[in-house]
Structure formats: C-alpha cells, structure tokens
C-alpha cells in the first residue's frame, strides 16, 4: 500500500491535482478580477480548440520559431564543433559567444525591428539570437572536452583525424550538444513569444494580447497554457531523438 502512494506516477498525479485545485480555489476567491479559475480556463481552451481559433494561430507562431531554430542548430552546432577542433577559430570565436551567452540579447530586439521591419525576418532573427549562443557554446565545450584517452585510443588504433572526429569526438559530444539544443529550443520559444508580444502581435502572442485587451481572461490564460504545454512536449520530443540517432546505449537503459 505504501509503495502505491510513493510511486512516481501517483505522486505526479497528486501534485498536478493539488496545483490545479489551488488554482481553482484562487480563482474562486477571486484574488483578482483578471484571474479566471482553472475550470473556466479549461472550458475556454476547449472552446478555442473546437472553434478552430487555436489551429488558426499556431502556424504563425511556429513559422519563425522553426526557421530560427533550424538556422541556429545548423550553424550553431557547426560553428561550435569547428571552434572545439580548431585553436585559431576558438581564439577568435569563443570569447564572442561567451559574452553573448551571458548578455541579455533580448535588448537587441528594438534594433532588429528598426533594421528589418515588423515582418518575419525580425522574428526569425529574434529566435536566432536567443537560441544560438547556448547551442554554440555547448557544442564547443563538448568537443573541446572529449576524454583524452578516447582520442588516444583512436590514435593508437591508427584512426585518421577525420575518423577520430566522426567516430569518437562527435558521438562523445552528442549528449552535451543535445543539452545545448534543448536549452536553445527553450530560449527559442521565449524569443518567439517575446517577438510576438513586442514587435507585432501575431500567432499565439496575438491571441494573448487580444484577449487581454477585451478582458477575456479565461481565453488569454488558455492561450498561455497551450503554448507552455506545447513547448514542453516539443522539447521532450527533441530529447527522444538523441537516443534514436546517437546513443543507442541510453535507449537500452530506459
């Protein structure tokens, strides 16, 4: 009986029930006229899914997000691996990305809007600047810190430089590269929503700001709820792809 109550799944369900009940309770006091209950929010979510307003806005959000994430992953990983392998590239590139990673790059958005207008380009670039630094730095440090004996092993069995990079360095770095992709994707979502709230309301950002302006708070909360759930699922799927493509050993242990 005790094992049933401490089972991870049971506890997870209990925890979700507690949080949503607490939300419901706060909404019923109510703590603010702008704070809908959990059930109102879910009803609004169901309404928005069934009347198609949700499906109508998601493509607009995903377009800059996916383009931006693709660009940052592709160039970010390539750039990071190159910096990890080449000392000259490291010397020139690494400090820039170290500064950029700690910098609040969101502050560049007004500049981007000024230069590229309020269209797709600015939003794609917002996603890129938010997600790229962490992807580059993770790829770079993963490659830079490949275990020395692994490389010695490759050398002692007469692996060429290319073989050692492709068969040892990159697979060994893949967990950290993927961790970077995950963090980068999370930052990309932050950037995509920020761009929609800041540059011009489109997609899910439009749904949030519009419903806020007409005081349809349940719908506003439902839109936010949906994008949060979406982001978490997206990143979860991304994590799974690593096991499939690079690390069969992790799939065994799961």
């Amino acid at each position: 009986m005790k094992s049933f109550f401490t089972h991870p799944l049971t506890l997870r369900v209990i925890s979700v029930v507690i949080v949503f009940s607490f939300w419901e309770y706060l909404g019923r006091i109510p703590i603010s006229p702008a704070f809908p209950t959990f059930l109102e929010t879910m009803a609004a979510l169901w309404e928005m899914i069934t009347d198609g307003s949700m499906a109508a806005v998601y493509p607009a959000t995903f377009q800059p997000l996916l383009i931006g994430l693709f660009i940052s992953s592709f160039f970010g990983i390539a750039c990071g691996i190159f910096m990890g392998l080449n000392h000259r590239a490291e010397w020139f590139g690494a400090p820039v990305f170290i500064v950029l990673q700690s910098a609040p790059l969101a502050a560049l958005i007004p500049l981007l809007t000024f230069a590229y207008g309020i269209g797709l380009t600015s939003k794609v670039l917002t996603v890129c600047i938010m997600s790229m630094p962490v992807i580059v730095l993770n790829a770079y440090s993963a490659v830079r810190h490949t275990p020395v004996t692994m490389i010695e092993m490759g050398a002692s069995y007469l692996g060429s430089r290319w073989q050692i990079v492709m068969k040892i360095v990159i697979p060994a770095a893949s967990p950290v590269i993927y961790a970077g992709l995950r963090l980068g994707a999370a930052m990309g979502f932050i950037g995509a929503i920020l761009a929609e709230l800041l540059i011009t309301p489109t997609g899910i950002g439009d749904l949030i700001t519009y419903n806020q302006s007409i005081a349809e708070y349940a719908k506003m909360y439902a839109a936010i709820f949906s994008i949060m759930v979406f982001a978490v699922i997206f990143i979860e799927i991304l994590e799974r792809t690593e096991y499939i493509f690079f690390r069969p050993d992790k799939r065994v242990s799961q």
């Binding site: 999370a186 950037g191 709230l197």
Partner: peptide, 11 residues
C-alpha cells in the same frame, strides 16, 4: 525550466 516564460509576463 523549458517553458516559454515570456508568455507569462502578460499574466
């Protein structure tokens, strides 16, 4: 940790 926290700022 992986949610788009910017979406919560309007709230």
């Amino acid at each position: 940790l992986s949610a788009p926290l910017t979406a919560l700022v309007p709230v």
